[in-house]
Amino acid sequence: MSAVLIIEQVLNGLQFGVMLFLMAAGLTLVFGVMGLINLAHGSLYMIGAFACAAVAMATGSFWLGLAASIAASAAAGALIEVAVIRRLYDRDHLDQVLATFALILVFSEGTRWVFGSFPLYLDPPEGLSGAVTLPGGIDYPLYRLAIIVAGLAVAAGLFWLIGGTRLGIRIRAGESDREMIAALGVNIAALYTVVFALGAGLAGLAGAMVGAIQSVQVGMGEPVLILAFVVIVIGGVGSVAGALVGALLVGLTDTLGRFLLPVAFGAILPPSEAMGVGSALASMLIYLLMAVVLIFRPQGLFGARA
Protein backbone atom coordinates (compact mmCIF):
# COMPACT_ATOMS: atom_id res chain seq x y z
CA MET A 1 0.00 0.00 0.00
CA SER A 2 1.67 3.15 -1.17
CA ALA A 3 1.17 6.81 -0.39
CA VAL A 4 0.12 7.39 -3.99
CA LEU A 5 -2.74 4.97 -3.61
CA ILE A 6 -3.89 6.62 -0.40
CA ILE A 7 -3.80 10.09 -1.93
CA GLU A 8 -5.83 8.80 -4.86
CA GLN A 9 -8.42 7.38 -2.48
CA VAL A 10 -8.53 10.64 -0.52
CA LEU A 11 -9.20 12.50 -3.78
CA ASN A 12 -11.94 9.99 -4.65
CA GLY A 13 -13.41 10.54 -1.21
CA LEU A 14 -13.33 14.32 -1.72
CA GLN A 15 -15.02 14.00 -5.09
CA PHE A 16 -17.72 11.80 -3.57
CA GLY A 17 -18.13 14.19 -0.65
CA VAL A 18 -18.42 17.27 -2.85
CA MET A 19 -21.09 15.56 -4.91
CA LEU A 20 -22.96 14.61 -1.72
CA PHE A 21 -22.76 18.23 -0.63
CA LEU A 22 -24.60 19.39 -3.75
CA MET A 23 -27.39 16.95 -2.87
CA ALA A 24 -27.38 17.66 0.85
CA ALA A 25 -27.34 21.46 0.50
CA GLY A 26 -30.78 21.47 -1.12
CA LEU A 27 -32.19 18.97 1.36
CA THR A 28 -30.91 20.84 4.37
CA LEU A 29 -32.14 24.22 3.08
CA VAL A 30 -35.59 22.81 2.40
CA PHE A 31 -35.72 21.22 5.83
CA GLY A 32 -34.30 24.25 7.58
CA VAL A 33 -36.53 26.83 5.91
CA MET A 34 -39.73 24.89 5.28
CA GLY A 35 -39.41 22.05 7.79
CA LEU A 36 -40.00 19.49 5.06
CA ILE A 37 -38.51 16.04 4.55
CA ASN A 38 -38.21 15.62 0.81
CA LEU A 39 -37.60 12.03 -0.26
CA ALA A 40 -38.13 13.06 -3.89
CA HIS A 41 -34.83 14.95 -3.88
CA GLY A 42 -33.18 11.86 -5.38
CA SER A 43 -35.64 12.02 -8.27
CA LEU A 44 -34.48 15.57 -9.03
CA TYR A 45 -30.91 14.27 -9.13
CA MET A 46 -32.05 11.61 -11.60
CA ILE A 47 -33.89 14.18 -13.71
CA GLY A 48 -30.73 16.27 -13.91
CA ALA A 49 -28.71 13.27 -15.08
CA PHE A 50 -31.27 12.26 -17.69
CA ALA A 51 -31.67 15.81 -18.98
CA CYS A 52 -27.92 16.15 -19.33
CA ALA A 53 -27.56 12.79 -21.09
CA ALA A 54 -30.48 13.47 -23.46
CA VAL A 55 -29.35 16.98 -24.42
CA ALA A 56 -25.71 15.94 -24.71
CA MET A 57 -26.72 13.11 -27.02
CA ALA A 58 -28.90 15.36 -29.15
CA THR A 59 -26.51 18.29 -29.46
CA GLY A 60 -23.15 16.62 -28.87
CA SER A 61 -22.26 19.20 -26.24
CA PHE A 62 -21.77 18.22 -22.61
CA TRP A 63 -21.94 21.86 -21.52
CA LEU A 64 -25.36 22.38 -23.06
CA GLY A 65 -26.40 19.20 -21.29
CA LEU A 66 -25.11 20.54 -17.99
CA ALA A 67 -27.12 23.75 -18.43
CA ALA A 68 -30.17 21.69 -19.38
CA SER A 69 -29.78 19.55 -16.28
CA ILE A 70 -29.91 22.55 -13.96
CA ALA A 71 -32.82 24.07 -15.86
CA ALA A 72 -34.81 20.83 -16.01
CA SER A 73 -34.37 19.87 -12.38
CA ALA A 74 -35.03 23.39 -11.12
CA ALA A 75 -38.18 23.53 -13.25
CA ALA A 76 -39.29 20.11 -11.99
CA GLY A 77 -38.58 21.27 -8.45
CA ALA A 78 -40.62 24.44 -8.87
CA LEU A 79 -43.44 22.44 -10.44
CA ILE A 80 -43.74 19.91 -7.62
CA GLU A 81 -43.37 22.64 -5.02
CA VAL A 82 -46.36 24.50 -6.42
CA ALA A 83 -48.44 21.40 -7.15
CA VAL A 84 -47.74 19.15 -4.17
CA ILE A 85 -45.04 20.14 -1.69
CA ARG A 86 -46.74 23.42 -0.76
CA ARG A 87 -49.63 21.49 0.76
CA LEU A 88 -47.30 19.52 3.00
CA TYR A 89 -45.59 22.26 5.01
CA ASP A 90 -48.17 22.16 7.77
CA ARG A 91 -48.45 18.38 7.84
CA ASP A 92 -46.56 16.01 10.11
CA HIS A 93 -43.42 14.20 9.00
CA LEU A 94 -45.28 11.00 8.25
CA ASP A 95 -47.44 12.69 5.61
CA GLN A 96 -44.38 14.35 4.10
CA VAL A 97 -42.51 11.06 3.92
CA LEU A 98 -45.48 9.35 2.27
CA ALA A 99 -46.28 12.07 -0.24
CA THR A 100 -42.69 12.45 -1.35
CA PHE A 101 -42.32 8.64 -1.47
CA ALA A 102 -45.31 8.73 -3.83
CA LEU A 103 -43.50 11.36 -5.92
CA ILE A 104 -40.50 9.02 -6.22
CA LEU A 105 -42.75 6.32 -7.65
CA VAL A 106 -44.27 8.76 -10.13
CA PHE A 107 -40.93 10.21 -11.23
CA SER A 108 -39.15 6.86 -11.49
CA GLU A 109 -41.85 5.20 -13.51
CA GLY A 110 -42.37 8.34 -15.60
CA THR A 111 -38.68 8.42 -16.47
CA ARG A 112 -38.73 4.70 -17.26
CA TRP A 113 -41.69 5.37 -19.56
CA VAL A 114 -39.88 8.13 -21.44
CA PHE A 115 -36.35 6.73 -21.57
CA GLY A 116 -36.81 2.98 -21.10
CA SER A 117 -35.15 0.72 -18.58
CA PHE A 118 -31.72 0.63 -20.19
CA PRO A 119 -29.09 2.93 -18.75
CA LEU A 120 -27.87 5.88 -20.81
CA TYR A 121 -24.20 6.70 -21.03
CA LEU A 122 -22.76 10.14 -20.83
CA ASP A 123 -19.17 10.96 -21.77
CA PRO A 124 -17.21 13.59 -19.90
CA PRO A 125 -16.50 16.68 -22.05
CA GLU A 126 -13.48 16.34 -24.33
CA GLY A 127 -11.43 19.03 -22.66
CA LEU A 128 -11.71 17.21 -19.34
CA SER A 129 -11.11 13.62 -20.40
CA GLY A 130 -7.87 11.82 -19.70
CA ALA A 131 -5.62 11.98 -16.69
CA VAL A 132 -3.54 14.73 -15.25
CA THR A 133 -0.29 14.29 -13.36
CA LEU A 134 -0.41 15.89 -9.94
CA PRO A 135 2.65 17.01 -7.99
CA GLY A 136 4.25 13.87 -6.59
CA GLY A 137 3.73 11.92 -9.79
CA ILE A 138 0.12 10.87 -9.18
CA ASP A 139 -1.99 10.30 -12.29
CA TYR A 140 -5.57 11.27 -11.57
CA PRO A 141 -8.58 11.60 -13.91
CA LEU A 142 -8.98 15.26 -14.83
CA TYR A 143 -12.77 15.03 -14.85
CA ARG A 144 -12.93 13.90 -11.22
CA LEU A 145 -10.61 16.72 -10.27
CA ALA A 146 -12.91 19.12 -12.13
CA ILE A 147 -15.87 17.83 -10.11
CA ILE A 148 -14.03 18.59 -6.87
CA VAL A 149 -13.20 22.11 -8.06
CA ALA A 150 -16.70 22.74 -9.42
CA GLY A 151 -18.30 21.43 -6.23
CA LEU A 152 -16.14 23.61 -4.02
CA ALA A 153 -16.88 26.61 -6.26
CA VAL A 154 -20.62 25.97 -5.97
CA ALA A 155 -20.22 25.62 -2.21
CA ALA A 156 -18.46 28.99 -2.08
CA GLY A 157 -21.18 30.52 -4.23
CA LEU A 158 -23.86 29.10 -1.98
CA PHE A 159 -22.19 30.49 1.14
CA TRP A 160 -22.03 33.89 -0.55
CA LEU A 161 -25.67 33.62 -1.62
CA ILE A 162 -26.82 32.80 1.88
CA GLY A 163 -24.45 35.02 3.78
CA GLY A 164 -24.14 38.03 1.51
CA THR A 165 -27.23 38.62 -0.60
CA ARG A 166 -30.73 39.86 0.02
CA LEU A 167 -32.19 36.50 -0.94
CA GLY A 168 -29.89 34.84 1.58
CA ILE A 169 -31.04 37.18 4.32
CA ARG A 170 -34.62 36.25 3.57
CA ILE A 171 -33.80 32.55 3.56
CA ARG A 172 -32.10 32.83 6.93
CA ALA A 173 -34.97 34.91 8.26
CA GLY A 174 -37.40 32.29 7.02
CA GLU A 175 -35.43 29.67 8.91
CA SER A 176 -35.72 31.43 12.21
CA ASP A 177 -39.23 32.88 12.03
CA ARG A 178 -41.44 32.40 9.03
CA GLU A 179 -44.50 34.23 10.39
CA MET A 180 -42.48 37.31 11.15
CA ILE A 181 -40.92 37.69 7.72
CA ALA A 182 -44.32 37.08 6.11
CA ALA A 183 -45.68 39.86 8.30
CA LEU A 184 -42.84 42.10 7.15
CA GLY A 185 -44.09 41.85 3.61
CA VAL A 186 -41.89 39.14 2.12
CA ASN A 187 -43.79 36.93 -0.27
CA ILE A 188 -43.18 33.72 1.64
CA ALA A 189 -44.80 31.44 -0.94
CA ALA A 190 -42.53 32.73 -3.69
CA LEU A 191 -39.51 32.47 -1.39
CA TYR A 192 -40.31 28.81 -0.68
CA THR A 193 -40.61 28.07 -4.39
CA VAL A 194 -37.26 29.76 -5.06
CA VAL A 195 -35.51 27.85 -2.24
CA PHE A 196 -36.98 24.57 -3.43
CA ALA A 197 -36.01 25.22 -7.05
CA LEU A 198 -32.51 26.22 -5.95
CA GLY A 199 -32.06 22.95 -4.06
CA ALA A 200 -33.50 21.04 -6.99
CA GLY A 201 -31.10 22.71 -9.42
CA LEU A 202 -28.12 21.77 -7.24
CA ALA A 203 -29.33 18.17 -7.09
CA GLY A 204 -29.72 18.13 -10.87
CA LEU A 205 -26.22 19.53 -11.31
CA ALA A 206 -24.85 16.77 -9.07
CA GLY A 207 -26.73 14.16 -11.06
CA ALA A 208 -25.39 15.44 -14.37
CA MET A 209 -21.79 15.58 -13.16
CA VAL A 210 -21.93 12.08 -11.69
CA GLY A 211 -23.80 10.79 -14.73
CA ALA A 212 -20.59 11.13 -16.73
CA ILE A 213 -18.75 8.81 -14.32
CA GLN A 214 -21.47 6.26 -13.71
CA SER A 215 -24.37 5.20 -15.90
CA VAL A 216 -27.55 7.26 -16.04
CA GLN A 217 -30.45 5.06 -14.99
CA VAL A 218 -33.77 4.99 -13.17
CA GLY A 219 -33.28 4.52 -9.45
CA MET A 220 -29.84 6.17 -9.43
CA GLY A 221 -31.07 8.89 -7.11
CA GLU A 222 -32.25 6.94 -4.10
CA PRO A 223 -28.93 5.54 -2.81
CA VAL A 224 -27.50 9.07 -3.05
CA LEU A 225 -30.60 10.48 -1.38
CA ILE A 226 -30.16 8.26 1.65
CA LEU A 227 -26.49 9.21 1.90
CA ALA A 228 -27.48 12.87 1.66
CA PHE A 229 -29.84 12.34 4.58
CA VAL A 230 -27.01 10.78 6.53
CA VAL A 231 -24.96 13.86 5.68
CA ILE A 232 -27.52 16.38 6.90
CA VAL A 233 -28.22 14.45 10.07
CA ILE A 234 -24.49 14.30 10.84
CA GLY A 235 -23.93 17.94 9.89
CA GLY A 236 -27.00 19.28 11.62
CA VAL A 237 -30.32 19.78 9.89
CA GLY A 238 -30.69 23.22 8.34
CA SER A 239 -27.00 24.12 8.38
CA VAL A 240 -25.27 24.52 5.02
CA ALA A 241 -21.86 24.58 6.68
CA GLY A 242 -22.80 21.39 8.48
CA ALA A 243 -23.82 19.87 5.18
CA LEU A 244 -20.39 20.64 3.71
CA VAL A 245 -18.49 19.19 6.67
CA GLY A 246 -20.86 16.21 6.90
CA ALA A 247 -20.59 15.53 3.18
CA LEU A 248 -16.81 15.53 3.18
CA LEU A 249 -16.78 13.38 6.33
CA VAL A 250 -19.16 10.84 4.81
CA GLY A 251 -17.40 10.85 1.45
CA LEU A 252 -13.97 10.29 2.98
CA THR A 253 -15.17 7.76 5.57
CA ASP A 254 -16.96 5.67 2.98
CA THR A 255 -14.19 5.73 0.38
CA LEU A 256 -11.32 5.19 2.79
CA GLY A 257 -13.27 2.57 4.76
CA ARG A 258 -13.85 0.49 1.65
CA PHE A 259 -10.18 0.76 0.83
CA LEU A 260 -8.54 0.42 4.23
CA LEU A 261 -10.77 -1.96 6.21
CA PRO A 262 -10.15 -5.05 4.02
CA VAL A 263 -6.43 -4.28 4.26
CA ALA A 264 -6.67 -3.87 8.04
CA PHE A 265 -8.54 -7.14 8.48
CA GLY A 266 -5.98 -8.77 6.20
CA ALA A 267 -3.51 -8.42 9.06
CA ILE A 268 -5.53 -10.75 11.33
CA LEU A 269 -7.63 -12.89 8.98
CA PRO A 270 -6.95 -15.00 5.88
CA PRO A 271 -7.28 -12.89 2.69
CA SER A 272 -10.64 -14.20 1.44
CA GLU A 273 -12.34 -13.71 4.80
CA ALA A 274 -10.67 -10.35 5.36
CA MET A 275 -12.12 -9.14 2.07
CA GLY A 276 -15.63 -10.24 3.09
CA VAL A 277 -15.56 -8.94 6.66
CA GLY A 278 -13.78 -5.73 5.63
CA SER A 279 -16.14 -4.82 2.84
CA ALA A 280 -19.21 -5.77 4.90
CA LEU A 281 -18.09 -3.49 7.71
CA ALA A 282 -17.01 -0.74 5.32
CA SER A 283 -20.47 -0.53 3.76
CA MET A 284 -21.97 -0.10 7.23
CA LEU A 285 -19.41 2.43 8.40
CA ILE A 286 -21.19 5.69 7.55
CA TYR A 287 -24.43 4.49 9.12
CA LEU A 288 -22.44 3.62 12.20
CA LEU A 289 -20.97 7.12 12.11
CA MET A 290 -24.45 8.61 11.86
CA ALA A 291 -25.76 6.50 14.72
CA VAL A 292 -22.84 7.56 16.92
CA VAL A 293 -23.36 11.24 16.08
CA LEU A 294 -27.09 11.00 16.78
CA ILE A 295 -26.54 9.28 20.09
CA PHE A 296 -23.93 11.67 21.41
CA ARG A 297 -24.97 14.86 19.65
CA PRO A 298 -28.58 14.45 18.50
CA GLN A 299 -28.72 17.89 16.89
CA GLY A 300 -25.77 17.10 14.60
CA LEU A 301 -22.31 18.63 14.50
CA PHE A 302 -23.46 22.11 13.44
CA GLY A 303 -27.08 21.98 14.52
CA ALA A 304 -28.31 24.73 16.77
CA ARG A 305 -31.58 23.21 17.88
CA ALA A 306 -32.16 19.73 19.25
Binding site: I226, V230, V233, S279, Y287, A291
Partner: peptide, 20 residues
Protein backbone atom coordinates in the same frame (compact mmCIF):
# COMPACT_ATOMS: atom_id res chain seq x y z
CA UNK B 1 -37.12 13.54 11.66
CA UNK B 2 -34.12 12.16 13.56
CA UNK B 3 -36.04 9.07 14.62
CA UNK B 4 -37.12 8.50 11.03
CA UNK B 5 -33.55 8.85 9.81
CA UNK B 6 -31.83 6.76 12.47
CA UNK B 7 -34.23 3.84 12.04
CA UNK B 8 -33.58 4.12 8.31
CA UNK B 9 -29.86 4.13 8.98
CA UNK B 10 -30.01 0.94 11.05
CA UNK B 11 -32.03 -0.80 8.36
CA UNK B 12 -29.51 0.31 5.73
CA UNK B 13 -26.71 -1.07 7.89
CA UNK B 14 -28.32 -4.50 7.89
CA UNK B 15 -29.10 -4.19 4.18
CA UNK B 16 -25.52 -3.50 3.20
CA UNK B 17 -24.29 -6.12 5.63
CA UNK B 18 -26.53 -8.71 3.96
CA UNK B 19 -25.35 -7.64 0.51
CA UNK B 20 -21.67 -7.80 1.25
Amino acid sequence: IFFIMITLAFAQMLYYFAIS
